[in-house]
Amino acid sequence: MTDNVTVLITGASTGIGAIYADRFASRGHNLVLVARDAARLEALAKKLQAQYGVEAEIILADLTQAGELDAVAQRLRDDRRIGVLVNNAGMSLSGSFISQTSADINRMVALNLSAALTLAHAVAPRLAAAGKGSIINLSSVVGLAPEFGMTVYGATKAFILFLSQGLSIELGPQGVYVQAVLPAATRTEIWQRSGVDVNAMSGVMDADELVDAALVGYDRGEPVTIPPLYDEHQWTVNEQSRQAMLPGFSQQHPAPRYRNSSE
């Protein structure tokens, strides 16, 4: 999808982000790796440099902190070598909406939603002006399924899906490829950090399989890639049904079922 440009990956120290780093390095891309864990980032950077002969720079940043997020955003605005952004950093929470604290909810929204939005907004104008580049946003199937009971987490991921689809429509004609990747349960540390025993769950995908599948979708130029969905037709039908409603949204008067509240 791109020339041999530098790839900036958030949440790169472990899990999905680290595997994206490995896969892009194996394709010959230099890397900018962003996360909070200095020891893990340094170890990963040294490993990838030795294994693939690429440059791997690290940026220590907590993307829930405005100043540190702004520094990464400024790097995306200024560094013309960076042609791919992988918005991977994210977190989840255990418990229900009413048991979660406001502080934890706000931190999750800041990381899952605001940070991804800020970084995409930082890099998009430069990519559009160049007429090339890619933004990969990690969403989740939970953003399609309120029935899964992860209300705020799912809401942040629904936002990322909508953002990606909107950016795809807006930036695609300007040469910028935007992909939303929707994993289901994936074996990463996000579960341990949110207090969930992933080993007690069934149907959990390994992170390397998830990323390899996502990159197949990337190479094909898919706007939305859902690795765990076997029946691709279901997503096609979902999109066709949604788009079929669009003409019906432009109405001068309410639908007949809303015109008489006594009925």
Rank of each mutant, 00 (worst) to 15 (best):
S134L: 03
E147C: 03
G221P: 12
T10R: 00
V142H: 06
Q174N: 08
I160F: 09
V7T: 04
E57G: 01
S164A: 15
G131M: 10
N106W: 02
I135R: 06
Y177M: 13
L144E: 05
V204F: 03
R77T: 14
Q165Y: 06
R40T: 09
L229S: 10
G28F: 11
A50T: 11
A38Y: 10
S102A: 13
T14P: 03
R242E: 11
A12I: 07
A180L: 06
L48N: 13
A39P: 03
A45I: 04
E68I: 09
G217E: 09
P228E: 04
A21E: 06
W191Q: 02
L44G: 01
S114C: 06
R220C: 05
L246H: 11
Y153W: 13
D70T: 12
Q251I: 11
A56S: 11
A158D: 06
S168G: 15
K157N: 11
A18S: 15
D104Q: 14
D70R: 08
L76F: 04
H29F: 09
E189F: 00
A56H: 06
L8W: 02
R36D: 00
G154V: 11
G248Y: 14
M205Q: 15
T186A: 10
T2I: 07
R40D: 12
Q252C: 03
A38L: 12
R40L: 14
E239P: 00
L111E: 01
I136Q: 01
A25F: 04
G175V: 11
V141P: 01
P183E: 04
L63W: 00
L44E: 02
H29Q: 10
E147A: 15
A244P: 04
G143T: 02
Q192I: 01
P223Y: 01
L127M: 15
S164N: 12
G166H: 10
L127D: 02
R220V: 02
P223E: 04
V109K: 08
L111V: 01
G154C: 10
S261Y: 12
E68D: 12
S261T: 12
H121C: 07
T188H: 04
